[in-house]
Simulated assay, not measured.
Amino acid sequence: MVPFAGYSMPVQYPQGLMAEHLHTRASAGLFDVSHMGQLRLVGPDAAAAFETLMPVDVIDLPVGKQRYGLLLTDEGTIIDDLMFFNRGSDIFVIVNGACKAGDIAHIQARIGQRCEVIPMPERGLLALQGPQAAAALARLVPGVEKLVFMSGGAFDWEGADLFITRSGYTGEDGFEISVHESRAEALARALLAQPEVKPIGLGARNSLRLEAGLCLYGNDIDTTTTPPEAALNWALQKVRRTGGARAGGFPGADKVLAQIDQPQTLARKRVGLIAKERVPVREPAVLENMDGQAIGQVTSGLLSPTLNQPIALAYVQADYAQPGTELFAIVRGKPVPMTVAPTPFVPTRYYRG
C-alpha cells in the first residue's frame, strides 16, 4: 500500500505485478479506482457551458454515450484529461484523483453560474477489465453485456443503484462501475467471488495503460503540454477545429488550432519507443541522437509484461518523431538503443458490437 492523492492505494497484491498484468490480459481484473473524482453537471445549459472549457464536442454527444475530454488552460496546455457521459438528465464527469480538487474548482469558477456543478464524493468507482469481464459482470448485473465501448447506463444490483460504462484504461474490454460508498465493498467482494476475477493494483494498472499507449496525467501530459504536442489531435472533433460557429472558443484555441494547422511549428512531440535490448528504460531518462545530443526525455517506461520488451512514451524533438527513427536512452550512463514505434504497443480489444 502507498499514499496517493490523499488515499492509501494498493500497488500490488500477493500475486505481484507481472501475474496481475497477465491475468487482466487473459481473464478479468478488478481495480478499486474510487480515488477518481466523480461529478455531475446539471441544467439545460450544461453541455454548452462544458464545451467552453474543452476542445471537444460536448453538445452533440448522444444520450447514453461517453467521450474523452481535455480541460485546458488559457495557454492551451492540459489541466487534466477526463471522461464525460451524457445521461440526458445531467453530464456525468470522471476526473483524475490527483487533480480532482483543482478540476472541480476550475469548472465551478468557469461555468458554475451556467449550470450546477455537483461533486459526488459519496460514490465509489470499480473498474473490471479484461476479456472475461463481461461474462463475470453479467452474472451479477444482467444486461451489461449489451453495452458497447463508450456506452453505458443505470443498473441495479441487490437494490444498489449502479452507473456502468463499457470503458476503462487498460486497452481491454471492460467496465467502470460507479456505486454508492455504502455498497462498494460488497460489490467488490461479489465480483471477486467470480472465478475469472482477481484484484489488481496500481502497478499493473500502469503497465496495462502504457502497453495501450494511453497517457498518464502528471507523466505524459500536464500544464506544460498542448494536445498537438501530446499527439492527442484525435480527441478534438472536427466541429471544434475547422470553420463553423463552434470551431475554437475554448481556452488557448488560437495556439492549439495553429499547432494543428501547422504541425511543422511543433518543437516536440509525444512518441512511443521500443528498446532493442532487454534493459528497462524508465522516466526521466534522457534521449540522445546518434551524435550524443540530447533530443528528448522519457515520460513513462517499463518492461512490457505482454511483449517482454522495454517500452516507453517520450517527448522528442519533432524531427525525430517519425516511426522507425533510432534513438538512445541513457540508462545509468550507458546508451540503450530504442526505435520510435506507433502506439498502442499491444492491440486494443474494445468491444464495439
Rank of each mutant, 00 (worst) to 15 (best):
S178L: 14
E176L: 10
E185P: 00
E185S: 14
E196N: 08
G168S: 10
E196Y: 08
F175P: 06
D173E: 05
E185V: 15
I177F: 01
S178V: 13
I177W: 02
A193T: 07
F175T: 07
S178A: 13
A188C: 11
R183N: 09
A190S: 11
E196S: 08
I177T: 04
G171W: 04
Q194K: 05
P195M: 04
S178R: 09
E185R: 15
L187N: 02
D173I: 06
I177Q: 03
P195D: 08
E196G: 07
G171V: 06
L187W: 02
H180W: 12
L192D: 08
G171Q: 13
I177R: 03
E181P: 00
S167Y: 01
R189P: 03
E172Y: 02
G168E: 10
D173V: 07
A184F: 12
S182G: 07
G168V: 14
H180K: 09
R189E: 14
V179C: 10
G171D: 04
P195W: 09
P195I: 02
R183Q: 09
G168R: 00
G171L: 04
A193W: 02
T170C: 01
A188D: 05
R183I: 02
R189A: 15
E181D: 12
G171F: 01
H180V: 13
P195G: 07
E176A: 07
V179F: 15
V179N: 06
E172I: 15
R189D: 11
S167G: 09
R189V: 15
T170A: 01
E185G: 12
Q194W: 02
P195F: 04
A190W: 02
S182L: 07
S182N: 12
F175G: 09
G171I: 05
Q194L: 10
P195Q: 12
A188G: 13
S182I: 10
P195E: 11
S182Y: 05
S182P: 00
D173A: 15
G171N: 13
R189T: 13
L191N: 10
T170S: 09
A184Y: 08
S167M: 08
Q194N: 03
V179Y: 12
A184I: 12
G174T: 15
S178C: 12
A190L: 05
G168A: 07
S178M: 12
T170D: 03
A184P: 01
A193C: 05
A193N: 11
H180D: 13
E176Y: 03
E185N: 14
Y169E: 03
S178Q: 08
R189S: 15
E181C: 11
E185F: 07
E172G: 11
I177G: 05
A190M: 05
E172R: 09
S167N: 11
A190Y: 04
V179Q: 04
E196H: 09
E172H: 10
G174Q: 08
V179L: 14
H180C: 10
A193K: 08
G168Y: 01
L191R: 00
E181T: 06
S167D: 04
E176T: 11
A186K: 04
A184L: 10
P195L: 03
D173S: 15
R183K: 13
H180R: 08
S167Q: 10
D173M: 13
L187M: 04
Q194D: 03
T170I: 06
L187Y: 02
F175E: 01
E185H: 15
A188I: 09
G168D: 11
I177S: 07
S178P: 00
R189F: 07
A190C: 06
L192A: 08
E196I: 06
